[in-house]
Design a protein around this nucleic acid. Sequence first.
DNA 1: GTCCAGCGTA
DNA 2: TACGCTGGAC
Length: 417
Amino acid sequence: MTQPTANSESSDITFNHTTPSLNSFAPRLLDWFAENGRHDLPWQQHQTDTPNPYVVWLSEVMLQQTQVTTVLPYFARFMDTFPTVQDLAAADWDLVAEHWAGLGYYARARNLHKGAKQLVEIIDETRGFPQTLSGWEAISGVGPSTAGAIMAMGLHRYGVICDGNVKRVLTRWAAIDGDITKSATTKELWALAERLTPVDDSRLFAQAMMDMGATLCTRSKPACLLCPLKDDCLAHAEGRETDYPVKAKKQPKPSKFSDALLIESLDHDMLWLQRPDNGIWGGLWSLPLQFVEKVTGKITGKSQNTANDTPLDVRSNEKVYETEFTTAEQIINEWLTENKLVAESISSTLLDDDPIKHSLTHFHWYLTPRKLTVDAAQMNELSEKLAAAEITFKWLTEQKAQDSLGLPRAMEKLIER
DNA sequence: GTCCAGCGTA
DNA sequence: TACGCTGGAC
């Protein structure tokens, strides 16, 4: 999806409002923002005078997935450790991962790190940050929405944003009832956002729209009485604010089950593995996991027709083995199988049959912590097998792992047990 | 406890 | 179009 280019006369698109309504949208919004908007967010502070593309880029990438209050401490820590894009580009990945740990969607941290390197290269060549929409869209992790935000707020140039907040405001104001996950609706919303964005004030307009969506035009219980757009908001006129935006129904999530192995040395160090770059928790660190094949289904006799009643696909062990284990975990699995005593001791030293539940985008994950103590010889043997396969691993206490590794939330939950 | 938002990439 | 994570809303 490409953001439409500036064209205020897009004659092939019709809008649900009259020209006076369309034209007065921005002035009403900007008046409200001047009075009631947030102007003190840390990534806004330098913007009244000198544009700072780095802080806007960094904050926008964080805000792609996360609410303002959650982002604040992460942003502060990033700026503290990586005050410039050059600092970020020069940093080791593990340090970046540690700073991002807990925010989720770790591919974005990898793209951020990669993007920093790309930006430094561009800056070295051109003596400055990219100055165009397409220039920013070429940076890893920057799509049309983030690029528009950076153009407007990071460079003080013309830029249009159409993120989730904007889409909520606009679908309500214009009673747009198309599914916003469909490309036709996306196109319609971008066209409306562009029609409403004032060419010479797109920076404040973008900030105002995000503030509106975040504080007034919220998903549930919108504060319509305080809204500068209520007089011609088509959803409000019908009392149907919360019917927008329209989205396709979600698929029920399947469940997966894994054991999380706390393989502990006699010195109380545990084995930690760095996960592959792609897939879940890419580039972060995790306890070794062992996929457990289980038929899901309600054991209680209720006959509710929920997702849990649907059996998992019957797959061969070989298929499961390939898709559910990382290389490191396959090696560990083989090592455990070869050493039957060890394998037995896992099940016999069961710590807690109560799994932690961790829900991801497309499935629920039940992780059961299982403890296993290895002697020095076993520790060496396992380490050698992992090293031979060029697996990145560390033996660290829980405390040291928490302090020095990028751990996903699920690992924090597990070791708190 | 369960549901939901959020944007970019492969 | 499938997929990625978590906190907050309900």
